[in-house]
């Protein structure tokens, strides 16, 4: 049996101090991902600092119309929140497309963003994995690849980020509020997760001991008319094969004034399709125009036999999502 110290944090600053000062300490949120990893031996901390009871569990409306979501707001509460459903429907839908009712009741906002990859080799300590054990090699290259990345992968790691919420947050220009030993800093969602490069062990740009305290959502036209679609291997309770979070704002003449597209299931981080967004600005939304824009973004895709399907799948799903938004459909 492994000895494990459990601290229930009283305030955020002391939680940060405890974890920052101990390389073998981890924050514990809802535990739906971390506790699995403890059981599987994927990670072996000696100290857990439970932050799930810190009073960071409110959704507050900001003076500028934005929203501040405390890290301990549970996924199911966030999905059901009226202001979120009205002003950022993509966020609510992404949450509801993920995991199961029970897990969403338990999972926290910060924990969701920091959940780790579902790569089968990462989760199996009997196989080499650069993300789990840096320098041991990547078993997924030449191995099981159905869920692997097609954009932004490296020779060290080809996995994808599993969070649905993170993809939605990337599409609404969210900011993650982080507390470190030197105080608070604000990280734009697009800079929060990273591509694997030669340091796949590092999922995000957070330093050890930095605590997510909140996520802020600006009120925008694209967020108000936004939605999320996810393709998966079964009707529920499965991670995305690919997913699309999108928001759209049209001019009076029906051309695209502004658009946000983020893809899940294609990269080590939520993939903001900025090339596609630029292609679409000023154009009319049609299946053809969106497909062409998505293909421009996907020109950089690298696929193999197991991942080739992701390119047409995400292209088609993007076309469906944006044409649906243009028609005012809000599925």
């Amino acid at each position: 049996m492994k000895e494990l110290t459990y601290h229930r944090a009283d305030d955020a600053a002391s939680a940060v101090a405890l974890v920052a000062g101990d390389p073998d300490a981890r924050f514990l949120g809802g535990g739906t991902n971390l506790v699995d990893h403890l059981k599987l031996g994927v990670t072996s901390p000696t100290t857990l600092v439970d932050v799930s009871r810190l009073p960071l569990d409110e959704v507050t409306e900001l003076p500028d119309g934005g929203l501040r979501i405390g890290t301990n707001v549970r996924n199911s509460d966030l999905a059901a929140h009226r202001a979120v459903r009205r002003g950022w429907p993509v966020v609510a839908r992404a949450l509801l497309a993920g995991a199961s009712g029970q897990i969403r009741n338990q999972a926290t906002t910060g924990g969701n963003l920091l959940q780790r990859t579902r790569c089968v080799y990462f989760q199996d300590v009997t196989t080499p994995c650069n993300k789990r054990d840096p320098g041991t090699g990547c078993s997924a290259i030449g191995g099981y690849g159905r869920y692997n990345a097609v954009l932004g992968a490296s020779e060290a790691c080809v996995t994808t980020h599993p969070s649905d919420l993170a993809v939605a947050l990337a599409a609404v220009d969210a900011t993650v509020v982080v507390l470190g030993q030197d105080g608070e800093r604000r990280v734009p969602m697009s800079d929060f997760h990273r591509l694997p490069g030669d340091r796949p062990e590092q999922d995000t740009t957070l330093a050890h001991g930095e605590l997510v305290t909140a996520v802020e959502l600006p009120a925008t036209g694209t967020a108000r008319r936004s939605t999320y679609r996810k393709a998966r291997d079964r009707a529920s309770y499965a991670f995305a094969l690919v997913s699309v979070a999108a928001g759209l704002e049209l001019d009076d003449d029906g051309r695209v004034r502004d658009v946000r597209i983020a893809w899940g299931g294609v990269a080590h981080k939520p993939w903001r399709a900025e090339v596609a967004e630029a292609e679409l600005r000023g154009r009319f939304v049609s299946e053809e125009s969106v497909r062409a824009a998505a293909e421009a973004e996907l020109a950089a895709a690298v696929t193999d036999e197991q991942t080739a399907y992701k390119v047409p799948m995400v292209r088609n799903l993007t076309a469906l999502t944006l044409t649906g938004l243009a028609e005012g459909a809000t599925r």
Partner: peptide, 30 residues
């Protein structure tokens, strides 16, 4: 018909889809 597929890694002989999150069976919604 829709889901089940164990994936044995030919390099190691190891079934890598070795839990019910990665070896899919029909969920209620199916």
């Amino acid at each position: 018909a829709l889901h089940e597929e164990g994936w044995r890694d030919p390099r190691t002989g190891h079934t890598v889809t070795q839990d019910l999150a990665t070896y899919h069976v029909a969920a209620h919604a199916d």
